[in-house]
């Protein structure tokens, strides 16, 4: 063994992992630190930042200067954050309600068919999300696929005004991230021992009770993973909110994008991103907890 290598096995293990730590350090911690630092600086009106410390970005989240230069409470951004969470939770719930039966159905198929279905589920990812979201404008929009036949048949006599609503955003988000719900639920259902379902029905369970008492508890880790995988990109999404919400109904993601692009307020954008990051971290801690519980069940199996 080389004399340069550390003696203890633990130290060698650390040494072996060094490249990974360097990568994580450079490509994750450094950008996040830059973002954290920027959020405490003054904005440069021409883009970028001025090297002067300031908490203005965080103040701006809650307060604004009125005409007499007094700080007053401004609910505008809070409302956007609130709506982001609301829409993201809504999209997550819809994804769950739609995704679970799909995953369950796929699990019940013969093995060779299952792979085909999973392949089909992932097909949308082969096309750009922007283009797929534009498709929804054609579907929902004025003179679109839904409206035109109804208008022609005389069932409605004015536009349904489906575009540029919270509903349109929720549809867009659900559509974008539904596969991310189906896949982890399928992965956990696939591991489910279906003989347990027979045992449950033998012990006087109705179909509904088999679901609630056996299937759902046993694939909870997959459900939680799916919810997080959908919720996190939803809350940072800006394509669906911008295109289907018309940029009027802003969400956190579009707000951040707006700050870096048109508004040229990098510190504020960074502060919003920090907020987003904390939401994600909270969600991941929640996931880690439930995953640990699952490990406890399976690790001892």
């Amino acid at each position: 063994m080389s004399k340069w290598l550390p003696k203890s096995a633990a130290a060698r293990r650390w040494l072996g992992l060094t490249p990974a730590y360097v990568m994580i350090g450079i490509f994750m911690l450094v950008p996040i630190s830059i973002m954290a630092v920027y959020s405490f600086l003054e904005p440069n009106p021409y883009g970028g930042v001025l090297p002067e410390p300031s908490v203005a970005a965080y103040v701006k989240l809650f307060l604004e200067y009125d005409l007499e230069d007094n700080l007053v409470f401004n609910p505008g951004y809070i409302n956007i954050i609130f709506r982001s969470f609301q829409l993201s939770i809504m999209a997550t719930v819809i994804c769950l309600v739609m995704g679970f039966p799909v995953a369950y159905y796929i699990t019940l198929q013969p093995e060779n068919k299952r792979n085909i279905y999973i392949y089909l589920i992932t097909i949308p990812f082969w096309t750009n999300l922007l283009i797929r979201t534009f498709a929804w404008i054609i579907i929902l929009g004025r003179g679109g696929v839904i409206e035109t036949p109804l208008l022609n048949l005389g069932i409605i006599d004015d536009s349904l005004k489906m575009m540029y609503t919270d509903g349109a955003i929720a549809i867009g988000l659900t559509y974008s991230y539904l596969p991310l719900m189906v896949l982890p639920i399928y992965a956990s259902l696939e591991k489910l021992d279906f003989r347990l379902l027979e045992a449950a029905s033998d012990l006087y369970s109705s179909r509904f009770q088999i679901m609630t008492k056996v299937v759902i508890p046993l694939c909870k880790p997959g459900i939680v993973a799916g919810c997080i995988l959908v919720f996190i990109p939803c809350i940072g999404a800006f394509i669906a909110p911008n295109l289907l919400g018309g940029g009027k109904k802003l969400m956190l993601g579009s707000l951040v994008q707006f700050q870096f692009a048109s508004a040229r307020n990098w510190p504020f954008g960074s502060a919003l991103s920090m907020l987003l990051l904390s939401a994600v971290v909270v969600a991941l801690i929640f996931y880690a907890r439930s995953a640990r519980k699952k490990e406890y069940i399976q690790g001892t199996a």
Partner: peptide, 28 residues
């Protein structure tokens, strides 16, 4: 099966892994 007053001891036991021993026994 749930309407038959017949219970099965499965060859592979088929105990519910997410429940304690007592919860398993109380399930029916």
């Amino acid at each position: 099966p749930s309407q038959r007053s017949v219970n099965t001891v499965f060859q592979h036991y088929a105990l519910f892994p997410h429940m304690s021993v007592a919860e398993n026994v109380g399930f029916g």
